[in-house]
Design a protein around this nucleic acid. Structure first.
Length: 266
DNA sequence: ATGGTCGTCCCACGA
């Protein structure tokens, strides 16, 4: 069972690249972020033709998340609980019918949070929104963990966990993905009892999931690791592999993120 | 060398 996450940076701009990768990698479940479209404009037919069921939580121009699954999708929760006034489409969760029983996945597009400081040296509303969103995610994850079922919380977390996960830590000092407050919120989430897939299986430095379009970042391997899979104990027990499909970054009209895939005996 | 690239949608803004 392959469960993937990929920030596609517009599903419609990325459709040829997404179809090519789905056909080659054949993930059973693919969580997409930044689809940048409303539900009605999602290219359903082309993706359904590859054998996927589709659930979207879209938004015009910005954000938007989706879950593609070759297996039946049962329950769907669009939107991160905890703030009825939050209008940004950054979370969708679904229960999937696996061959050995149901498991739960979430496709997460955690806020970027930059810029962190305003001219007066105060934290910006954008960064406060990121920190609040991370608190809401922690609260929701704590509730989900009580189900004691396989749970995979995956997506673009916009969090660089450690210095080894960035090409030049000094250059990213102060960025919203690498701030002490961000790291504290990240650790609080992990401390609920979630397992970080990459750290669990590999943990080596210099393996990235995002390279900026600017400054020849890809050509010079100036990347960061911000796309993650977090697992409940019941999912971690079934984890068998992990990979980053970094070659996708070399394709035609690539996203600035690449797919990240966990393999499970689920 | 203080720019540089995308995507959305048409004007800046977000990343």
């Amino acid at each position: 069972m392959q469960i993937a996450t990929w920030n596609v940076n517009s599903i419609n701009a990325r459709l040829p690249a997404v179809l090519k990768w789905l056909a080659e990698a054949k993930p059973d479940v693919a969580c997409l972020q930044e689809i940048k479209t409303v539900d009605d404009a999602f290219p359903r037919e082309e993706i359904e033709a590859l054998g996927y069921n589709i659930q979207t939580h879209g938004q015009k121009s910005y954000n938007g998340v989706a879950i593609l699954s070759k297996l039946p999708i049962e329950e769907v929760i669009p939107g991160l609980p905890g703030d009825e006034t939050d209008e940004q489409a950054r979370y969708i969760e679904a229960v999937i019918s696996g061959p050995q029983g149901p498991f739960r996945v979430a496709s997460i597009y955690l806020p970027n949070g930059n810029p962190v400081m305003d001219d007066a040296g105060q934290l910006t509303a954008k960064y406060e929104y990121k920190l609040n969103w991370m608190r809401r995610l922690k609260d929701h994850a704590a509730m989900l963990l009580k189900y004691e079922e396989p749970l995979i919380l995956t997506g673009d977390y916009n969090v660089i966990p450690e210095a080894k996960d960035v090409h030049d830590p000094a250059a990213w000092q102060g960025d919203a993905a690498f701030r002490p407050e961000t790291h504290a919120a990240w650790r609080a989430l992990l401390n609920l009892g979630l397992t970080e897939t990459f750290e669990h299986l590999d943990g080596r430095a210099g393996q990235y999931t995002f390279w900026d379009y600017q400054r020849g970042a890809w050509q010079n391997n100036m990347g960061i690791r911000i796309d993650h899979l977090l697992l409940s104990p019941q999912a971690a027990d079934k984890l068998t592999g992990f990979r980053i499909d970094k070659d996708v970054r070399d394709g035609v009209k690539p996203s600035d993120h690449v797919p990240v895939i966990g393999t499970f005996d689920l």
